[in-house]
Nucleic acid binder design. Structure first.
Lengths: 233, 233
DNA sequence: CAGTGGTCTAGACCACGTG
DNA sequence: ACGTGGTCTAGACCACTGT
């Protein structure tokens, strides 16, 4: 048998993974350096580098200059969740997406919002309440705050036909975001809007975004009963 | 001014991102190819390639051979959640981790578990019920199923001192996993175990893992009231 | 078929961090 | 100080896919 093919970084990844599984290298121990592996696999160091870089991204190994590369004793794999845009999520399940604005007001942000955004001076914001429907079923209630200091042009928008999320995605780029998953018992108001009995456990997502340290928006999303979010890795 | 520094792929990433923000290239439109950009930035194509590859991973652009690279009209950024190991999560907040086994039985898996794992033949499994405490506070209730066909050595484990999660991470590598976040109202049994009133909204995580298409384990985790999970991106 | 991204090479220099 | 990973280059060939 002659190895006619060039060695690909993916082959190297697989081989290294197999060795980790088989404890060819003990968890926590040092594995050979890039030069040595390149020699062993008969390829360029850059190829080994790419394989190992991706393994590090996947949380299988720890790399440090000078110290070398270690097998993680407890591989910390990360789940990646695509944060879906609600319109697409609903249309993906074959339902018709419908949006309704419930309330729209201009006001001075209360302290808890300022704190949540890391602000400490009086700030004008827009607060929106809206509903998102899948066909005739209530899908999500949205409580949205938009910082007018960062996004002044939001003042000119009525948000009657297009939801704040869609508008913001189109109009305002963001550099950083924070997403929080949690759960609450539906209160009187929300249970009425979502058509569930009071006290029902609801999945909630909070989302904060910034543009270079300037807070753009805060949203709390309340999903219909039974909502779940899944990820493969 | 002379550009003395070499151009790094990170600089290129930033520049391209800025251009996307500023709509220098319209959303949905084609951006220049790697060769052209390499010329513009005065660097090697490989450098541009790395920048663009990462932007594609981040969900900012779409790349296709021959067709070229397009700005995504709706950037689909992904949130990455580190799936924490409970012991570390508890110790990270400065509490003492304690584990307690409630029940341990060997049985033939019921149909719903088989279906969930994609199996269709009678299978022996171990079912474990356990609690995880942070100091004196109940933190999580775990309902765990382990497939003995894939992990026969689990039969020899008592799981009285070490939790199934910790044991599995150490002993059994996995190739694929599926994680689902959802929420339920606490039933009588679980509310008692977690020390909350019946009906309280609880955050739940379901986790399924495989080793090369062979199902290893299914776990449903019920967290204490108020639990949340956060990610920055 | 031809154009674009995907990957590999061989060599080089640099930056970080351990000893 | 020096070894290891991090990055860049210039060039090459390949693989996919739109036309």
């Amino acid at each position: 048998m002659i190895e006619s093919q060039k060695v690909s970084y993916q082959d190297i990844k697989k081989t290294i993974l197999r060795r980790i599984y088989n404890k060819f290298w003990a968890p926590g121990s040092l594995m050979p350096g890039e030069v040595e592996l390149a020699l062993e696999f008969g390829c360029a160091r850059a190829t080994v580098n790419r394989a190992m870089r991706e393994l590090a991204e996947d949380g299988m190994i720890d790399r440090k200059r000078k110290a070398g590369t270690r097998i993680k004793s407890a591989p910390s794999r990360q789940a990646k969740f695509a944060i879906p845009r609600i319109k697409e999520e609903i249309e993906a399940i074959g339902s018709v997406y419908r949006y309704a604005l419930i309330n729209h007001e201009l006001l001075t942000a209360p302290d808890w919002i300022l704190a949540r955004m890391g602000l400490n001076e009086e700030t004008q914001m827009i607060r929106l309440s809206c509903m998102h429907y899948a066909g005739s079923r209530a899908f999500q209630y949205e409580d949205r705050w938009i910082n007018l200091k960062t996004v002044p042009k939001a003042k000119m928008q009525s948000f009657t036909k297009i939801g704040p999320n869609e508008w913001l995605i189109k109009e305002v780029p963001f550099s950083d975001a924070e997403v929080t998953f949690s759960t609450i018992n539906a209160d009187e108001k929300i249970s009425r809007l979502l058509g569930v009995s009071s006290g029902t456990a609801l999945f909630t997502v909070e989302r904060l975004t910034w543009l270079n340290n300037a807070p753009i928006t805060y949203a709390k999303l309340f999903f219909h009963a039974g909502y779940q979010i899944t990820s493969r890795l």
